Amino acid sequence: MPADSVQEVFLNPGDFHFAGGHTRIRTLLGSCVSIALWHPERKLGGMCHFILPERGQPAAGQELDGRYATEAMGLFDRAIGRAGTRPQDYRAKIFGGGNMFPGRENHAGIQIGQRNIEVAHRLLAERKIAVVAEHLGGAGHRKLVFDIWSGDAWLVFREAGTNKN
């Protein structure tokens, strides 16, 4: 793919992008999770970058917020519907959910990364979307690249407390 024909999109925490064609989506993940969905026949898909599993009940008329897994999946639901496709025709790849502070005691007993991983699996299972690849958990951060035209994803994982990839 010639580099000048690729649309580059960078997702910050809470961002969502769904497209077709020559689109490449990038992001950086710690305890956050990204779900990349791809439709193999239509060569379209997207990616979200959520921070937390859910925010509770949004107020009436409030927009979906991609910072929360349940609402990021709602954004996918809308995009899939607009594309005239079905959720179960997509393939999912899930990344992230790392422990960014290994060795630190978590006094609240809450492991955000692990909760994000669990909710991602649950939301995809509810929609009967097959998970074909994942790189989850661990202690560190990830650089992720997803090419919509091919469905390929590349990942660089940097373990916390080391200089190795």
Rank of each mutant, 00 (worst) to 15 (best):
N116T: 07
L75D: 08
I110E: 05
I80R: 06
H49E: 05
R55I: 08
R42K: 13
M73G: 00
E41Q: 07
R127C: 03
R104K: 14
A69F: 02
G61F: 07
D15A: 10
F50T: 01
R26L: 12
L124H: 05
G21K: 00
H49P: 06
R91Q: 15
G30F: 11
M47S: 10
P58C: 08
I80M: 08
L64A: 07
Q88G: 14
G45D: 09
F76L: 14
L75A: 05
F50Q: 02
E118G: 08
F18L: 08
R127Q: 04
G113Q: 06
F50P: 07
I112A: 04
T85H: 15
F18P: 03
A79R: 01
R91N: 13
G66H: 04
D65I: 00
P53I: 09
R86S: 14
G113P: 06
M100D: 12
L52Y: 15
A60T: 13
P87L: 04
L29S: 07
N116Q: 06
S34V: 05
A83S: 15
P40L: 12
A59T: 05
T70F: 04
A120W: 03
K43A: 10
H49M: 12
A36P: 01
E126C: 09
A69G: 02
R104H: 05
C48D: 13
N99M: 11
P53C: 13
P53M: 14
A125W: 09
W38C: 12
N116Y: 03
A36I: 05
A72S: 03
I25K: 09
A108G: 13
F101N: 06
V33N: 12
R122W: 13
F16H: 02
D65P: 02
E41N: 09
E126H: 05
A92P: 03
A36Y: 10
F50C: 01
E126K: 11
P58T: 05
Q62C: 11
H107K: 11
G21V: 03
G109F: 01
A108E: 15
G113H: 07
Q111L: 09
A79Q: 03
E118K: 08
G66L: 02
L64P: 05
G97Y: 05
G74M: 00
N106L: 15
R122M: 08
F50N: 01
G46Y: 04
G96H: 01
G30Y: 11
A69M: 00
G97C: 05
F101G: 00
E126A: 09
S31Q: 15
